[in-house]
Design a binder for these strands. Structure first.
Lengths: 168, 168
DNA sequence: AAGTAAGTTCAAAGGGTTCTGAAAGTTCAC
DNA sequence: GTGAACTTTCAGAACCCTTTGAACTTACTT
């Protein structure tokens, strides 16, 4: 496979993964493009590579910065902004987990907790409350595990944690 | 909060979670409804509860069965089919992980592996290959961890694994 | 075998998210 | 202070996924 072809394919792949996980295609594609760009790119470079409009690219670059996956930089002598992605895939993964946890897991935990306080003592309500409690516990445990995983060092995870798992 | 109100809210909540994670709203809502229904429901019951069309409900019940989250049952003396969800949230979570791993993680692993075989030896291509290799490794490790997690017993996870993590 | 009560399918309509592009805003150099 | 370069915003257009509903199939009953 040739270089340019492979790059295009990776951008498509990353876009598809994003779509499957509820992230908009362009955002994922911009991220992919920056991941495989050695040097920082300007908004125009991204527009051209992805055939996307200025507004779209701008919006998604902001979103990526908001997610902590991309940083702005400047080139001396250039007025415009350049963008560069975090290239350490372990840091990247941690950041994505951290954000999704904050944006989606925690609100759900709160809602489930509230729902488990439903009034009533008929059999149906009892079962409902029980389900909410179970789901609440599941999310809490997931939260704990992810929290620990994120505070762990990359090296610890590969050497200790995965080895430990491999023996199970 | 009253019973009926709480049920509706849970159905909405589950639908929203689904949407955020790339699962269609109705499918998640049907799942939610079955999760909090003590007895199996018929397609008509689901249609009425969710105000959805017959075709839509049928399609999403099939999908849930395909995901291994819902089973068909029959009531003696009744011709029509009834549906019931897996109520053990731990089994449910494992099943979701198993399916997403199979449907999404593994194809991505394969694609990344192919992409890491890109030809060329210029600096740019070298960096691209390196990124693909890193992502490939990350997905492989994730795969290993999830595989182990799914083969583990519920009890082992809560007692040993989470305690172990808590000390990190 | 005809009638009835489901279950399934799919083309077209609908709805929600994403994208565009032009106008407005900002920043910097001179 | 003015103009040029660049960035941001947002209303409407475009697009794609989801849903509908009616025709079709299947399977049971009498």
């Amino acid at each position: 496979m040739k270089n340019e072809e492979a790059r295009q394919e990776f951008i498509q792949l990353w876009g598809t993964i994003g779509t499957n996980w509820g992230i908009n295609r362009t955002m994922a594609q911009v991220h992919a493009l920056l991941l495989i760009s050695k040097d920082p790119l300007g908004a125009d470079d991204v527009m051209e590579s992805l055939n996307a409009s200025r507004g779209n690219v701008n919006m998604n670059l902001r979103a990526l910065i908001d997610w902590g996956l991309v940083r702005k930089t400047h080139k001396s002598g250039e007025r415009r902004e350049f963008f560069i992605a975090e290239k350490d895939v372990w840091k990247m993964a941690r950041q994505i987990i951290k954000e999704r946890k904050k944006r989606e897991l925690e609100p759900v935990r709160n809602s489930l907790h509230e729902l488990s306080a439903v009034e009533g003592d008929c059999e149906e309500t009892e079962a409902f409350r029980h389900m909410m409690a179970d789901l609440s516990k599941l999310t809490s445990e997931t939260d704990t595990a992810l929290e620990a995983l994120m505070n762990a060092e990359r090296n610890w995870v590969t050497t200790t944690f995965l080895k430990f798992f491999a023996n199970k």
